[in-house]
Design a protein around this nucleic acid. Structure first.
Length: 520
DNA sequence: GTAGGGTTAG
């Protein structure tokens, strides 16, 4: 056979295996090609890179080797290959490698731009994703963004809680006639719900002429994170009655999350135990984590532990993480230690677990243990993730870190917060400084909690918005106890609605109360 | 004769 024919056949084989999810087998065929002296062509490279993504283990290393090989043969400038490379690096979270390929491309089109925007959006760099989108729009009038581009851009807006930008993109989507495309609408539902506008999410959802399982799941999880478990379950029932789409594993993860945020213990248990008999969906570690979360938050730690012990699969880090989170709420040392032992084995570099355990010890005033955990954290070269909050004002994002000395408005924000603090103390408020894990006098600790990023963002929101406008804030961590009570007070004192999205859920503060019912 | 980017959860 001629070599071109042989390469063609091998390509087809590699492609088929990669498409079937058998990346390792596909790569084995690649190796055979090399051994028999057949050289890759431009098609082989794209299929081989795809195989690295769907393979089991060493895909990252194999892909880098493939990159080296195609580089030596001058294929990196090929549009399709470069785009595939960007996507390969994106899937392994190697943003700077993807960026390097993108920057060095001699020619780009809408697909390569979208691949890079998607890479940033999915790897925790939503701000840069939007920047790149605008660069594409402004600097490259010939490249018209399409529905795929819009999905990634909407994802970035959702991650940032950038409602203003999201609405702008929504208008753009309508003007371009992309509003009948299913994934675009699904992304709109998620964008509006993550930006805190649940009504608009529902409106988009209701107007969709076709819905797939992602549409339903998006709406269910939207209600769930906003603390409306009953509505989430109603949407689920609508989905079942409609009958055109079957629920999947994600549906139940969303439902269990919804029950957990609202404290619906019995309903959550009922849903969990209906999965296999009614829907033939076998619970994964994430589902067990959901159930453990529901029971744990409700203070039923023994029952949660029993669920873990009786699991039919090996409990993953999410399960132990749920238990540890519950131990923090209910200050249970014994189970916290059991969960930590497993978590430190399963994910030794997750700083959050060490911090949670230290918080639990601190709450119990077990300072020696607090120091022991802190030393462990340091010994492993890890750092506590620092708190960060942000707010969108007139389409621009303003972000704050705790005790934000570099912020130009810090004096003004601080003065406003001190004023609130004094008023609150007259009404019996005592600052909650338990979250501070190092020794400091009480005055110093109060100063620090008053400088928490979330409070700075609230103060900024109050100064830069008009009465009647809802203040929308996003935070990268769980809301601390003190910020929660202070925000409740501010909502009453200023007669303003404040919406805070923390890392897990939304809190609607109004008239001195929070929608989470102080249960989060 | 074969090619590239997309939505839900955690």
């Amino acid at each position: 056979m001629r070599e071109t024919t042989t390469v063609f056949v091998s390509n087809a084989f590699i492609r088929a295996l990669a498409l079937a999810g058998r990346g390792d087998d596909a790569l084995a065929v690649c190796c055979q090609m090399s051994e028999t002296g057949l050289s890759f062509d431009r098609f082989t490279y794209t299929y081989a890179l795809k195989a690295c993504v769907v393979g089991s283990g060493s895909g990252e290393m194999k892909g880098k080797e493939i990159h080296g090989s195609l580089l030596r043969r001058g294929f990196e400038r090929n549009l399709h290959i470069a785009t595939t490379l960007i996507d390969f690096y994106a899937k392994f979270g190697l943003v700077s490698c993807a960026g390097k390929v993108f920057d060095e491309m001699p020619v780009r089109n809408v697909v390569s731009w979208s691949a890079m925007i998607g890479c940033l959006a999915k790897n925790g760099r939503p701000f840069e994703a939007l920047e790149l989108f605008w660069e594409m729009m402004v600097g490259n009038p010939d490249e018209v963004p399409n529905s795929v581009t819009m999905v990634s851009v909407l994802q970035a807006c959702a991650a940032l809680s950038a409602l203003g930008q999201g609405k702008f993109i929504h208008c753009f989507v309508v003007r371009r006639g992309l509003d009948s495309i299913l994934p675009v609408n699904n992304s709109l539902v998620t964008m509006y719900s993550k930006c805190g506008d649940l009504e608009m999410a529902r409106r988009v959802f209701d107007r969709m002429d076709r819905r797939d399982v992602v549409s339903w799941n998006s709406m269910i999880s939207g209600y769930g994170v906003h603390g409306f478990a009953e509505e989430a379950i109603m949407v689920f029932k609508e989905m079942i009655n409609d009958g055109r789409v079957s629920p999947n594993a994600v549906t139940f993860i969303s439902l269990l999350g919804a029950c957990s945020h609202s404290g619906l213990v019995d309903e959550g248990k009922r849903l969990f135990y209906s999965m296999v008999p009614e829907y033939h969906i076998y619970p994964s570690s994430e589902h067990y984590a959901g159930l453990v979360d529901i029971l744990g938050r409700a203070g039923r730690l023994e029952e949660a532990m029993k669920v873990i012990e009786d699991m039919r699969i090996e409990p993953g880090s999410t399960v132990w993480g749920s238990l540890l989170g519950a131990c923090r709420i209910h200050c249970n040392i014994e189970f916290a230690e059991r969960a930590s032992v497993r978590l430190f084995e399963l994910e030794p570099t997750n700083a959050g677990n060490y911090v949670l355990l230290a918080d639990i010890y601190a709450e119990a005033k077990m300072w020696e243990e607090v120091n022991r955990v802190k030393k462990l954290l340091e010994a492993r070269g890890l750092q506590k993730v620092s708190g960060c909050s942000w707010i969108e004002v007139k389409g621009k994002i303003y972000s704050f870190v705790s005790v934000d000395e570099l912020n130009p408005q810090i004096e003004q924000l601080h003065a406003l917060l001190v004023k609130f603090s004094l008023e609150m103390k007259e009404k019996g408020y005592v600052p909650d400084t338990k979250a501070i894990l190092y020794e400091l006098d009480e005055v110093g600790k109060e100063e620090i909690v008053l400088g928490h990023s979330e409070k700075l963002a609230v103060a900024f929101g109050l100064i830069n918005s008009s009465a009647g406008e809802t203040i929308r804030i996003t935070k990268n961590l769980r809301l601390c106890q003190d910020c929660h009570s202070v925000t409740k007070f501010i909502s009453q004192f200023t007669n303003r609605e404040i919406l805070v999205r923390d890392v897990n859920r939304f809190h609607h503060f109004k008239n001195g109360l929070c929608s989470c019912g102080d249960y989060w």
